[in-house]
Write a protein that binds this DNA or RNA. Sequence first.
RNA 1: CGCGGGGUAGAGCAGUCUGGUAGCUCGUCGGGCUCAUAACCCGGAGGUCAUGUGGUUCAAAUCCCUUCCCCGCAA
Length: 315
Amino acid sequence: MGTPAFAAEVLRAIAEKPGVELVGAVTRPDKPKGRGMKLLMSPVKEYALARSIPVFQPKTLKNGAFDQELAALEPELIVVAAYGNILPHEVLVFPKYGCVNAHGSLLPKYRGASPIQRAILDGERETGITAMFMDDGLDTGDVIKTYPCPIEDGDDCGSLTEKLAVIAGKAMCETIDTLLDGTVTRTPQPEEGASYAAKIGKEDEALDFSRDAESLRNQIRALSPAPLASTTTPDGRGLKIAQAALGGDCPDTEPGLVTEVGSKGEGYVRVACGKGSLLITKLVPEGKKCMSAGDFVRGRKIAAGDLLGRQPERL
RNA sequence: CGCGGGGUAGAGCAGUCUGGUAGCUCGUCGGGCUCAUAACCCGGAGGUCAUGUGGUUCAAAUCCCUUCCCCGCAA
């Protein structure tokens, strides 16, 4: 059971594992999405269809809505990765081997919906995958094994998620092996050090340049490649920042002020922050595609002296 | 039919309102300057202005209409 690309990678790993019979893939229903009313299928569904794995898309698992299908499939084990729906107790206890989950953090840290984003946002240097048994709580089940993964300086949410997805795939394969040969271990999570990674929302996207450059850069990394940290240009249009580097000291300057632009090559836009400055290197203007800062400067859309993020956040 | 922006040289844009020689900042190629350079100077190549044997016109990148595609917002 899973939905996004992260889950599709786990599905792939399991599907290619010898001796595993996949009786079905469960993913969220196609949702009318995007500009028109395009129905977009999840990466998990896409992969499952390509491999001729039966796909199930129940709106909910609650209230016995999925019981019939579940009974017919007779799964011995359910592997969950970023599914997006809550599994009720009846489902959790149905399979012979139970339900195992690949969670994108080193539990009990960052339980919840957005562990990867939150870890980057907080400037963590290490995260990982936790293989665990699911219980009725939110990512509170017994831990099978943890797989640490460093967060590199150049990582953004996209690259880190890819790395973790690969680890998660291996972790689940390993978990299946230990389940089958009976060597699986389970360790209750310590309550100490537990934290909750709330889902990333719109309020996490706006950049506040009065904060220090490092935390702003973490914010940009955590939200890249989607949904991206956002600010506004002097003419009031939206501007999303896809990538930025630390730009050194920038004393006595109004936060948000563009102090310097570079038009050669990839270029850059230096923005003063509450502490230090940011060198913006990739961005997405409203109505445009992602482009380098150099392209943006060349198109005459910004110059030194402009003030970004003027509009106070309305919340 | 949710709202809106956009498609002009390899990239990013201007020009469109007020039809009349295809422009700018870069990149690229060649040459020059220099101890040297991603710096500076000179020169060149590169575009059927998304689509339509569309409409209007003496004349369309520009005004009108068609279709396709891209993106932001909202969900």
